[in-house]
Amino acid sequence: MIEAAMLWNEPNNKSHWDPEVDPEWTRFAEMTIGAAKAVEAANPAVKRVLGGISPIDPHFIRRMIGYGVLDHIDVVALHGFPLDWNLWSIHDWPAKVAEIEAVVPEREIWVTEVGVGSFGAEEVQQFGVDRTAELLVGRVPRIFWYSLFDLPMEWGATTRHREAEGSSYYRHFHMGLIKADGTPKLGLDHYARHAADMGLMQWFHFEDPRLDDAVAWMKRLGVKHLRTGLSWADYFRPNALDWFDRQMEALADFETTVTFCFTPEHLGIAEHHTSAPRDPAGFADFCAEMIERYAPAVPMRAAANG
């Protein structure tokens, strides 16, 4: 059920990795190399994806190359939201992909988060779905539209400065194709036309009540590829494995890219989920355990007989 393991999320964005704790990303590189090796040892068939970068920055990728990270990575992932947060046009998507291809021509490039919100108008999102598909389907092997559901306002968005970011913060709550109350938006039918070629990215919160509805909607839409996450921080909650098991069992019919991220506060250099961990081996151990649990390697004899 797991096609790929993404190692962290947006490591070059301070909302997901604290640059004050790790200003040169040396700790991130060490952590990622260890995790990539652990995933490969657990199941070499699972693709190893560098945490999707946002902004799309070839200099960051060159830094990772210099640290040896790309020696252990199969896929470089990009995140882009040109109609909401980025300072470039939606029409620049092919050029943005080409910028990274030029740096890592031997690696696959995936777009693991792309979205257009309905903050201003649902018609903007409707246009964005179709234009994104025109620009990216056939250009990269995997595309994941962010997201299926709006984020409920009462949950809060994972961002560093929250309401102080003004409209940038409030846009986080309007990225879904379906409103938080379950009402479909105009863009949903347009997405359905592309669902076989453009997967979905949907975060599920711990014990998320939307899980079963999400699965039903994705099957109705014809979604084949899904990106989601398993939180290292959540791993330390009571009954965490019960929730992880339920989530992954529900998603078993999809080819899934699972993102492993979020430092448990008690294991961070700083007590925050964006902090580098004190011991990077802990993250590698978590990644290995999740792969062994949800994507165990098939022995060669069994594969041959299957």
Rank of each mutant, 00 (worst) to 15 (best):
S15F: 12
E113C: 03
V97S: 07
G66S: 06
E101M: 13
V76E: 06
E106D: 15
S89P: 06
E20N: 05
W88T: 00
S15L: 08
P58Y: 11
G66I: 00
V124W: 05
S89G: 05
M6H: 00
T112R: 11
F119S: 08
I65T: 14
D22M: 10
A35F: 13
E123R: 11
P55S: 10
A102L: 04
H91E: 15
P23C: 09
T112G: 10
E122F: 11
N86L: 10
D71H: 07
F81N: 00
R107F: 06
H72L: 06
F119I: 13
A29W: 01
P58W: 14
E30N: 14
A4V: 04
L7Y: 07
A77D: 13
G51S: 04
D18M: 13
V75E: 01
T112A: 09
V49Q: 11
A35E: 08
P19L: 06
F119K: 12
K96Y: 09
F119H: 15
E122N: 14
K37Q: 07
I61D: 02
T26Q: 08
D84K: 05
G120E: 14
E108Y: 02
I61W: 01
N12F: 14
I109D: 11
V21K: 07
G115H: 08
E40Q: 15
L83K: 12
A95R: 09
V75K: 01
H16W: 05
D74R: 07
E108V: 05
L50Q: 10
R27Q: 12
A102V: 06
V69L: 15
A121C: 05
A45Q: 05
P55N: 03
V103P: 03
G68C: 06
L50V: 01
E3D: 03
A41L: 01
V69A: 11
A38Y: 14
W25A: 11
P23V: 11
A29S: 07
V114G: 10
E101R: 14
E101C: 15
L50W: 00
V69E: 11
N86H: 05
A121M: 04
P58R: 15
W88A: 00
F60S: 10
V46T: 11
D74N: 05
V75C: 03
D71T: 02
P55L: 10
R62V: 15
A102H: 08
G120R: 15
G34P: 06
V124I: 12
V111I: 14
R63V: 01
K14P: 14
E20Q: 13
D71P: 04
A121Y: 04
L7A: 03
E101S: 09
G80W: 00
W93L: 06
V39Y: 02
F119L: 14
E123K: 11
V75L: 09
V103H: 01
A5V: 15
V116F: 01
N13A: 08
E24A: 12
M64K: 02
V46W: 08
P44F: 10
E106S: 07
I61S: 02
D22C: 07
I90F: 07
D57F: 11
T32R: 08
L78Y: 00
A38D: 06
R62H: 12
A42V: 00
A41E: 15
L7D: 02
L83Q: 13
